[in-house]
Amino acid sequence: MRASLILRAAQHRTPSIKFIGKRTPPNSFATYRSKAQQHGPLGGNAKASTSGFTTYGAIGGSAGRSLGSVQPKEGEVFDRNDLPKRFWRTQWTDEEIDAVTSGGATLVA
């Protein structure tokens, strides 16, 4: 057993993947954050609010009414129930509810 450990330690491991081009060090977190997006840009100028907190980016940095209307555009809906009834979700039957609750055991005859 000891001999195999010594042999394994003596072997040089060659990676199976080869990278093309020069290796560049990663950017700083501040540089990353200035380019990152999560529900809108994360970077930008910091704005102090009246409560003393600092907000970043476009989301949360201004009042909601200044963002514009929240009504759906022509041909868009926010809820499936705003569509014609044929597109609504169908109601579960009692048999389907029993099958789910029992884990399907009641369906086996």
Rank of each mutant, 00 (worst) to 15 (best):
M1R: 05
R2F: 10
A3E: 13
A3D: 13
A3C: 06
S4R: 09
S4E: 12
L5V: 01
I6M: 09
L7E: 15
L7D: 14
A9L: 09
A9D: 11
Q11A: 13
Q11D: 04
H12A: 11
H12S: 11
T14A: 05
S16Y: 03
S16C: 01
S16R: 12
I17Q: 10
I17S: 08
I17D: 01
I17G: 00
K18N: 07
I20E: 15
I20H: 14
G21W: 04
K22H: 03
R23P: 01
N27A: 14
N27L: 14
N27R: 10
N27W: 09
S28H: 10
F29Q: 12
F29D: 13
F29E: 13
F29C: 10
T31Q: 15
T31S: 14
Y32P: 00
R33N: 10
K35N: 06
A36R: 13
A36F: 13
Q37T: 14
Q38T: 02
H39T: 03
P41C: 00
L42C: 09
G43L: 03
G43S: 10
G44D: 02
N45K: 14
N45Q: 14
N45V: 10
A46W: 06
A46S: 12
A46H: 05
S49F: 02
S49T: 12
T50P: 05
T50Y: 02
T50S: 13
S51L: 09
S51H: 04
G52T: 03
F53H: 12
T55I: 06
T55K: 08
Y56L: 11
Y56N: 08
Y56T: 04
A58N: 10
A58F: 03
I59Y: 07
I59N: 13
G60C: 03
G60S: 06
S62L: 12
S62P: 00
A63P: 02
A63Y: 08
A63V: 01
A63K: 11
G64Y: 01
G64D: 08
R65N: 08
S66M: 06
S66L: 11
S66T: 15
L67P: 00
G68I: 00
G68L: 02
S69A: 07
S69E: 07
V70W: 06
V70N: 14
V70D: 14
Q71L: 11
P72N: 01
K73H: 07
E74C: 00
E74G: 04
G75H: 02
G75L: 00
E76I: 02
E76T: 02
E76N: 07
V77D: 02
V77S: 04
F78N: 12
F78D: 10
D79R: 15
D79W: 10
D79H: 13
N81Y: 05
N81V: 03
D82M: 07
L83I: 03
F87R: 08
W88H: 15
W88A: 02
W88M: 01
R89H: 05
T90F: 02
T90A: 13
Q91D: 13
Q91C: 02
W92C: 01
T93C: 04
D94E: 11
D94Q: 13
E95S: 11
E96N: 09
I97V: 15
A99K: 01
V100I: 12
T101P: 00
T101W: 02
T101H: 07
T101L: 14
S102A: 10
G103D: 09
G103M: 07
G103L: 05
G104E: 05
G104Y: 06
A105F: 06
A105E: 14
A105S: 14
L107H: 08
L107G: 09
L107I: 06
L107M: 12
A109W: 06
A109K: 15
A109R: 15
